[in-house]
């Protein structure tokens, strides 16, 4: 039922989503922690900036990325001068765009669970002479585990569902930028409804299972409250 091209697209999607989630967890954790603790008056500004991909049509994001990452755009000039070439139509470009696209889906759950920990456990840790770094790894991270799980699942799933951005900057290259949503779209456009049905059913099943797992494993994402 699945053609090699379909399987290639599924595998590529899995790779993009995994790498994106990993990068976002690495970058999003310090970012979310900073946003939780900062008293900067710029905080609302950064919160708004991070939430932007939630409300922006993906085509807007894709359009700007295509221009910014192009040879005349600032990002394109930067990547060119670093010897990386321009990013559109490449796997790295796709991962970069996905990171921006899925950023709020990772940062927000983390920030919410960090905020729900409150000051108390941190103060207790400090009285026990834990360094801030130690506190983060031995107190905050375990308490924020549901947040990390939610962030990973949402980040991964949202990247799998990415479509408009990829369509704008991907160039539809097999095994490089032709992810499953684009492959599905092409099947529909070419009136190949049988293949389209198969892929659509896989995505539908995947989305449901992922959300089911999330709601089963993380029954109460704010359970950490009881410690404070």
């Amino acid at each position: 039922m699945l053609t090699p091209a379909d399987i290639g697209a599924l595998w590529l999607t899995f790779k993009v989503a995994s790498i994106t989630t990993l990068i976002l967890l690495l970058l999003g954790t310090p970012l979310a922690w900073w946003l939780t603790n900062t008293r900067s008056r710029w905080k609302p500004f950064f919160n708004a900036l991070i939430a932007m991909p939630l409300v922006l049509p993906p085509t807007v994001l894709g359009f700007y990325l295509l221009i910014l990452m192009g040879p005349k755009g600032p990002l394109g000039q930067l990547s060119n001068s670093l010897g990386l070439g321009t990013l559109p139509f490449t796997f790295s470009g796709l991962v970069f765009a996905s990171c921006i696209y899925s950023l709020p889906f990772v940062v927000q759950p983390l920030q919410n669970s960090f905020e729900s920990i409150g000051q108390r456990p941190l103060e207790v840790a400090a009285t026990l002479r834990a360094s801030p770094l130690d506190t983060f790894f031995s107190v905050v991270m375990p308490l924020a585990k549901p947040g990390f799980l939610t962030a990973s699942i949402l980040g991964f799933a949202h990247t799998v569902g990415e479509f408009g951005v990829v369509l704008m900057i991907g160039g539809n290259i097999p095994d490089k930028t032709r992810v499953v949503s684009v492959q599905l779209y092409n099947h529909v456009e070419a009136l190949e409804y049988t293949q389209a049905h198969t892929l659509a059913a896989i995505l539908l099943g995947f989305s449901f299972v992922v959300l089911l797992v999330m709601y089963t494993v993380i029954k109460s994402p704010v359970r950490v409250q009881q410690y404070s």
Partner: peptide, 13 residues
């Protein structure tokens, strides 16, 4: 080769 979904997108590239 990079392919646009339609000719407008190709032009944009």
């Amino acid at each position: 080769l990079v392919t646009g979904e339609n000719i407008s997108q190709t032009y944009q590239f």
